[in-house]
Design a protein around this nucleic acid. Structure first.
Lengths: 217, 217
DNA sequence: CATGATATTTTGTGATCACAAAATAGTAAA
DNA sequence: TTTACTATTTTGTGATCACAAAATATCATG
């Protein structure tokens, strides 16, 4: 994609994180990744440091870079900020959506319905993230968008990992439908409220999965 | 402070940015900074890349790193996010403040009063940032705090530069006093509202300075 | 004098090496 | 078997070098 190596490595490691390919607490070692991708340690170092700066990885002083572990407390902290930022983004985006945007969002909602019925976790998560991020992307505020993406990068890994093998609740799409209806009607406040309900329901669902996992381990 | 070089350089460049020591659009060159601090280019490179990742500097593809310029639009984007995040932080922090915290905040308000009367811009800005950041720091949510600090790093440089030589409005402390009264009374919602008024007034004040500058240049 | 092509310099990126601190393995004593 | 100490390996950091692309300077041409 980009012509410099550290950008490519950044994208690779980032998508690896979002896909849940690394375990919480796992150490990402510069030389290992470098030999895996066939490069020198230098661009790997830069990519990891960037991910640390963005909050996607945690780096202790003069120590290895680690995949952060998700606790209930940390999840609630992130959730609190998400509620504020994503609520704002929905409100701003609603009056700015084009006909094409609406069509895409409608398609996402339908795909989530199908995915829930056929129990395709990956399909659900994919459509879910597209629904949210495409909607927020229309808010017209790059600073806001950047902050939201930083938060998604911090929780994304746990979405994918925790959801894998879990039963999808049948209600996981209800609030998306409410939100879409409000969006289509141009009701920004209503869309925000519906989306906040969605985030809340989703957060509770995920906290249950988190409690299950930590109970098992 | 820290034992690794890139951390020191990061702190140095960062405080240089916050002090308004660099001009908007100015290119920060690795080798120049390296020779200025007497190090190799390597830790400078890391420090600059970190600042880019945090949004404090902008880095085009395979090009020099630049100090971003502030436009009205960008300032309004940042302000919109600040309003959401700092409002939330005040609300969360209010019931968590200790007696010592309150004493410190009261002191900040007094120092701002004195600074406005004696027209000491630096004194005002210093007390102002301490008031806000210490208050937010008590919110108990590190994720929120981190996001707020990222935004301050993006506007801080322009505070200091634009304010220098400007006349301080006599009303620049009114809302701090309102906010402090609400905080002291434990009225979280009221504190949030007062702080939002402060941010709004401050933003307008700064947008005037920005318009003045861009009109002159 | 203005303008576009060319040569020179500057600058960021990536590789390799040296080094110190941290992590790990190994060993001996209780 | 457990614990404390030591030796070895691993790992991140910082320096130096090579290189290509970008920025700048130089010069010829209209």
């Amino acid at each position: 994609m980009a012509d410099n190596l550290q950008e490519q490595l950044y994208q690779n490691i980032r998508s690896g994180l979002l896909a849940g390919r690394f375990q919480p607490g796992e150490r990402l070692k510069i030389r290992d990744l470098a030999s895996e991708w066939g490069t020198s340690p230098m661009p790997v170092r830069a990519a990891l440091q960037r991910l640390v700066a963005e909050g996607a990885l945690e780096g202790e002083q003069q120590r290895s870079v680690r995949v952060p572990s998700m606790t209930r407390e940390r999840y609630e902290n992130i959730f609190q900020v998400r509620l504020a930022l994503e609520g704002l983004a929905v409100e701003l985006a609603t009056p700015r959506l084009s006909r094409d945007d609406l069509a895409l969002l409608r398609d996402c909602v339908q795909r989530m319905d199908v995915a829930i019925e056929t129990r395709q976790v990956q399909g659900y998560l994919s459509a879910n993230s597209q629904f949210h991020l495409h909607l927020y992307g229309a808010c017209g505020n790059p600073v806001l968008m950047r902050s939201i993406e930083s938060l998604w990068l911090q929780i994304g890994p746990f979405f994918n990992r925790l959801f894998t093998g879990a039963d999808l609740s049948l209600r996981l799409n209800d609030f998306h439908e409410d939100a879409f209806a409000a969006i289509e009607a141009g009701d920004a406040k209503g869309a925000r409220q519906a989306m906040e309900q969605d985030l809340l329901y989703f957060a509770r669902f995920l906290l249950n999965l988190l409690a299950l996992e930590q109970g098992e381990v």
